[in-house]
Amino acid sequence: MSFLLHLITVTCILLPTIVGYNLVFGKGKIFHFGQIGLQILAAYPLWISIVLFDQYPIMGLLLGLISAFVAAWLLAWLSFRLDPDGLGVMSIAVHLSALNVVLNWQSVTRGALGVPGIPRWSFLADNVSFAIFVIVAVSVWCVFVWLLDRSAFGRKLQALSEHDWYAEALGISRKNVHIVAFLVAAGGALLTGVLLPQYLYLLSPTDFAFPAMIFVVMCVVAGKPGSMGGAILATALLMMLKEGLRLLPLSPGVVGPVRLLLFGLILLGAVWYRRDALFPPQREI
């Protein structure tokens, strides 16, 4: 029972960042691989200011919000300026640079040790009430993103992803739409950055390494890029597989590589199966 609760909680915690990313990469076809970088830039200012510098939670939240939104705005700006592959490499570089700073600026971030003693609100002290809170908060977020996706904004994003020149000729502003998409992704990263360290009572840099980004990409690709329901289902199934592997009678030295192997094969299979959804061929009359 406690494993099931853990599984539900961890899946729900990851959903905001994955659903937000699905809007940018899945629906918008914007080659952005810096979602976990946004999460670093949201979570570290937030929790360091609260735990290490004794600031009010609202102040920490504000710092995390500003930091994530500024980074998202910069990435959106870069998406107008760079080739898609250039943006992909640039966003990876931004993510790894942020991680490098976190790992090496030990006087502030405590480096690889992470920041322990992340507090939870008193009414969320036990795991059941925390899980209920997470489910409610994440449901609200998912409904918000779903409404956004179904609105004129979603149609504009899709039009831009199909053919940006034609879309712009019809009066759709690529800048505005991309900025909003990136800000939503940053909002998701912030929500995950608020919930995950609270659940673990620890802000650990290992949760923000590049494999975490690969997991996010895998969830979006496997669930059909652009499909919110697909992304949610894929996250649940992949998380079940990821956590379920711990239950197998394998030594700890083997579980990690087996998980990597399985996920690599799943990612390859998902890209092969979804290759037309990931980069659809141009529609013709």
Partner: peptide
Amino acid sequence: VTTIALGMILDA
């Protein structure tokens, strides 16, 4: 994306 998958398989 496929070479990311390859990287994971080779790492494993």
